[in-house]
Structure formats: structure tokens, C-alpha cells
């Protein structure tokens, strides 16, 4: 967006990865505390939208891992797939399973719920982010 705001631009190049990391932290924190895929996804959207506002929507779009529709589809697909391990274990669809992987010093708790949350995260990022970027793009066109 014009006019250029140099300070914001420089700052955002540093902040963008920090915001994405923070969104991942919120995603993982949602395991036992407030947070989760939806909120984390919204923070990631905020990172993309801030990018689009200070730089250009094209730049923000480039920094998405996939084009928005495919990112959304991938997210929902991951969320759906997270219900399948339960079925193979003889439980109803979407029954979630937990395992703890022992590592040398510590242990890594894993669950299909986390996979589900990751799917929600990607879907929210793709859908809401894509929506924001395309709306901002129409504003850019008019200027």
C-alpha cells in the first residue's frame, strides 16, 4: 500500500517470522491450555494481513506455504485424516489416540488431536488469509 512506510516495512520483515512462530506456539499450547488451531490460525492470518498492508498482497501471498484454496483444502483433509487412526484401532471415526514417544532425556507426547488442530490451523490460515488478501488486492487495484 502506498505511501510507503519504511519503518513498518523493515520492522515487519523481522516481525513476520516471529508472528508465525508465535502462532505455532499458540497452536501447540492449545494441547492443555487456552489456545489451539483456530486461534493460532488467526494469528497467522494477522501476520499475512500485516504483510499485505505494509508491503504488497503479492508479497504476502508468496509467503504462504501454498496458494490459499489448496492450503485450506490440505488443512481440512488433515483434520479428516486425523479421525482415521481411531477407525483402524476399531473405534468410531474421530476417536482420538495419544502416544508418548520416549526420547533420551525427555519424552514427546503425540496425539491425533494435535493433527486435527494442525488441520484447523492450516484451514483457517488458508481460508481467512486468502479472503483478506483478495479483499486487500481489490483495494490495491483501485489505488
Amino acid at each position: 500500500m502506498s505511501p510507503r512506510a519504511l519503518l513498518a516495512e523493515v520492522l515487519l520483515r523481522i516481525l513476520h517470522p516471529v508472528l508465525l512462530l508465535a502462532s505455532l506456539w499458540i497452536l501447540l499450547r492449545g494441547h492443555n491450555e487456552p489456545g489451539g488451531g483456530f486461534v493460532g490460525g488467526l494469528l497467522a492470518v494477522a501476520a499475512s494481513a500485516a504483510m499485505a498492508l505494509t508491503l504488497t498482497t503479492a508479497e504476502a501471498r508468496q509467503r504462504l506455504p501454498l496458494p490459499p484454496p489448496r492450503l485450506t483444502a490440505l488443512g481440512v483433509l488433515i483434520a479428516l485424516l486425523s479421525g482415521l487412526p481411531g477407525v483402524f484401532a476399531g473405534q468410531p471415526f474421530l476417536t482420538h489416540l495419544w502416544v508418548t514417544v520416549p526420547l533420551a532425556v525427555t519424552e514427546l507426547p503425540l496425539s491425533t488431536v494435535m493433527l486435527f488442530d494442525l488441520g484447523v490451523y492450516l484451514a483457517v490460515w488458508g481460508a481467512v488469509g486468502g479472503y483478506c488478501l483478495s479483499l486487500l488486492a481489490t483495494v490495491e487495484e483501485q489505488q
Binding site: 481440512v76 483433509l77 479428516l80
Partner: peptide
């Protein structure tokens, strides 16, 4: 599981259509 196929099969197909 068969009960859920009217939901899961078309939904998965829709998502795959976007991804392929």
C-alpha cells in the same frame, strides 16, 4: 463407518479435487 461415507467420501473428493 459406512454410515459416515455419505459425508466423508464427497468431502474428501472435494478436497482432493482442490489439491490435485
Amino acid at each position: 463407518m459406512l454410515v459416515l461415507t455419505p459425508l466423508l467420501v464427497p468431502l474428501a473428493t472435494a478436497l482432493l479435487c482442490l489439491l490435485v
